[in-house]
């Protein structure tokens, strides 16, 4: 039995560590007939170093948030744009298709064996005080993860506060920021319920985070060809992307019901505000499309088909 090493980050209770890796390990064991398994090691290096860790063979598998390596991964910004509908399961499956057919040719992950491309659900505002609407965002100090999320809130007139995800709790509790944009399950994952109780929802999200799971190439090449074939056919790629997205949906749903149960204020963007938001989103979209096109990809076409795929898969899920 061969034991692969998964280098992971985020708190141990985070959905990635609590649900996603255990699922992957289970499938690895099943598909390889027990000849292959893996164990998770937390925080071997800071999140932006995780891909290098796997590239150099200090670990076999990892997951990364593309936004942490700004400038290195550009095509991922396309799927992070607001304006896409669908659950994390639907967008993750659609993401895999878009990546497999188009985005991979930008060559950003050529040094790795890519196991999955996945996304968290829509990110919303989590604020310390109840806003009167979108105009309240103007002048607010908000923590954003850079990339698409930061571009959107800056155009809304918010002031970007830059701290790592692990420092969000401190920053909010000390009042150094008025809120944060993060995906829903961060409310439990990073204890936002305590420090930013107000849930301010933007239909479709302010952005959607893009992630990938990667394997060291040599590790992959060293696996038996029949195991490789079965893994590729039965799990890696769309099935794994989709499964990870679904786990994120489940975690989001649990968080939403916990937030409701705790009686925290939950507010939705009004229709009029949604119009304003959409026009801002369109500006950011034009910028990102231009940036990704420079990588030799027909970005607008890929974005359109990604959104259409997501809608179709979502319809299929709801059926």
């Amino acid at each position: 039995e061969r034991v692969l090493t998964i280098a992971s980050w985020a708190p141990p209770t985070h959905v990635v560590n609590a649900k996603m890796w255990p699922l992957m390990i289970e499938r690895l064991e099943e598909i390889s007939g027990g000849t292959l398994t893996a164990k998770v090691k937390l925080n071997l290096a800071p999140p932006p170093a995780m891909s290098d860790l796997v590239l150099d063979g200090a670990a076999d598998i990892t997951f990364i948030f593309h936004g942490y390596n700004s400038g290195r991964f550009v095509t991922s910004e396309l799927v992070e744009l607001p304006g896409t509908s669908g659950s994390a399961e639907a967008t993750s499956a659609a993401y895999w298709r878009a990546w497999d057919k188009h985005l991979r040719f930008a060559g950003e992950q050529d040094e790795f064996k890519t196991l999955a491309m996945f996304m968290h659900g829509p990110a919303h505002f989590h604020l310390t005080e109840v806003p009167s609407g979108l105009e309240s965002i103007k002048g607010m100090k908000l923590r954003a993860p850079g990339g698409v999320g930061s571009a959107v809130i800056e155009r809304l007139g918010a002031i970007g506060i830059q701290v790592p995800a692990t420092k969000v709790y401190e920053t909010l509790s000390s009042g150094a920021a008025d809120g944060v944009i993060m995906n829903i399950d961060s409310r439990t994952g990073f204890k936002l319920d305590e420090v930013a109780p107000v849930f301010f929802e933007v239909e479709g999200g302010v952005f959607r985070g893009s992630f990938t799971a990667l394997m060291n190439r040599e590790t992959w090449d060293s696996l038996a060809p029949d195991v490789q074939n079965r893994l590729d056919a039965e799990f890696f790629g769309e099935p794994m992307s989709r499964a990870f997205g679904r786990l994120w949906d489940e975690s989001d749903a649990a968080t939403i019901s916990a937030t409701q149960k705790a009686g925290k204020p939950m507010i939705k963007l009004s229709d009029a505000d949604m119009v304003t938001f959409t026009s801002v989103a369109k500006e950011v979209e034009a910028e990102v499309v231009k940036k990704v096109s420079a990588k030799g990809i027909d970005a607008q076409a890929v974005l359109d088909s990604f959104r259409a795929d997501s809608l179709a898969i979502q319809a299929e899920i709801e059926k």
């Binding site: 390596n69 700004s70 400038g71 290195r72 830059q162």
Partner: peptide, 15 residues
């Protein structure tokens, strides 16, 4: 070595 490689990726700080 890893610094030179990172230069090649055009990786930049977020802000």
């Amino acid at each position: 070595k890893s610094a030179i490689r990172t230069l090649g990726y055009n990786e930049v700080t977020l802000y």
